[in-house]
Design a binder for these strands. Structure first.
Lengths: 219, 219
DNA sequence: GTTCATATACCCTGTTCAGGGTATTTGAGC
DNA sequence: GCTCAAATACCCTGAACAGGGTATATGAAC
């Protein structure tokens, strides 16, 4: 069963080139092509359901509705259609925005047509083909995030009661409310809070909340 | 210039097979092979610096020191060596642990040798070749994270001045300190803070900090 | 040229907090 | 039975905050 794709790309010549080059592959069928997001959405609207493409090959840089906005709209109305982004620039921000919008593949425009075809086949099989250059950025980003979490994993050695108090402080309860909730005297709450302050090296509720959240001390 | 690799893989037959199959590619040179992480580290230690491999092709599942632990150790002592993980299972956890340990490529063992070679070449060029199936998991994970952030992306419509104030409050400055820092009267600070409270629907500094951090209003 | 949002400034009042103490009870570990 | 950490409880004081006002200057929008 062949792979039905549509090409969304503002460069007229590039579009024609892609169509021509895809024509040499029996399992790739170009259902339609569009010069921008608006026309793409129009084409999708006026096509019969069983004729819908499997994959949109989407340019990021387009006048009017750009590739990311178009991706978001398409994914909303046609969640079954996969989006393969293509771009000339290895732009970090666009990469993340595309992923968030729902794209699942990422190619560079100077990739050879065989890479395109391989990627389309992989995508049809449920994979998410990402060009190595883009994957590099993805991994960097994830390593960074993982690192942040890990670096913040200091041990402040709070007792379980102090963690109760901490949670209440983050929930913005007054000392009296905390006392009610934990069935202890407000004086005791005061004492616990003071001890928490000492252990976290802070001097205010605002700082407690910040430390608790950024260091992951509470859920 | 050829790509110097080492194969770390506990299956003796698989190792020999890989070596044989790589031998048909002129630009791939297998520097050494090891059946586990320990021996891999030993080989690296006793090799001359200029003979070090560019890339380690690392199995995840190995007795003793597994691929992830080995990756972490190798990356620590030889940050210049890239790690290409290979696994039979598309395991989410292992994928993330590998990334964190410093691996930059991810192949499935049933990928054809040409994919291996392509991936090695991509990696040598600075890319991070990730098999589409693994990339799928990566993207899902990132979308999930992005989604979490996004779900909290309500628009509180703070003015830029109010954002200044917000930042100061999160930084735990008193009203007087904020006034000093922004060159305005403490009374004005008070007014801004009150307006921020109204817009964020909170009644205390602790809540401001929590909302600002959890809703991503500040860096 | 009036309207509207924003930023600015000030007043008053009552509440809450932060930091400095001290002291008792309780349960686990030695 | 002693010790020690943890949890509990209380006192005092001054500083900071929250919420309720009002008011003016400014620049953009209509």
């Amino acid at each position: 069963m062949s792979i039905r794709i549509a090409i969304v790309e503002d460069g007229h010549q590039i579009r024609k080139n892609l169509i021509t080059r895809f024509s040499f592959f029996d399992d790739i069928e170009v259902v339609f092509d569009a010069p921008n997001g608006i026309e793409c959405l129009e084409s999708l609207k006026h096509i019969r359901k069983e004729e819908l493409p499997d994959i949109l090959l989407m340019d990021i840089e387009m006048p009017g509705l750009n590739g990311i906005e178009t991706t978001a709209k398409v994914k909303k109305d046609y969640p079954g259609i996969d989006i393969m982004m293509q771009t000339v620039f290895e732009d970090r921000d666009n990469l993340f925005r595309s992923i968030q919008a729902g794209a699942s593949g990422y190619l560079l425009k100077d990739d050879p047509i065989e890479k395109y075809v391989d990627a389309l086949r992989d995508m049809k099989d449920g994979g998410a083909p990402v060009s190595p250059a883009m994957a590099q950025k993805l991994l960097d980003h994830m390593r960074h995030q993982a690192g942040e979490h890990k670096s913040g994993e200091e041990d402040f050695d709070l007792t379980s009661r102090e963690l109760d108090i901490l949670q209440c402080v983050v929930d913005d309860l007054t000392e009296a409310q905390i006392a009610d909730q934990l069935y202890i005297s407000p004086h005791t709450v005061r004492t616990h809070i003071k001890n928490v302050y000492k252990k976290l090296h802070v001097h205010s509720r605002a700082s407690v909340v910040r430390v608790a959240l950024t260091k992951g001390l509470i859920s």
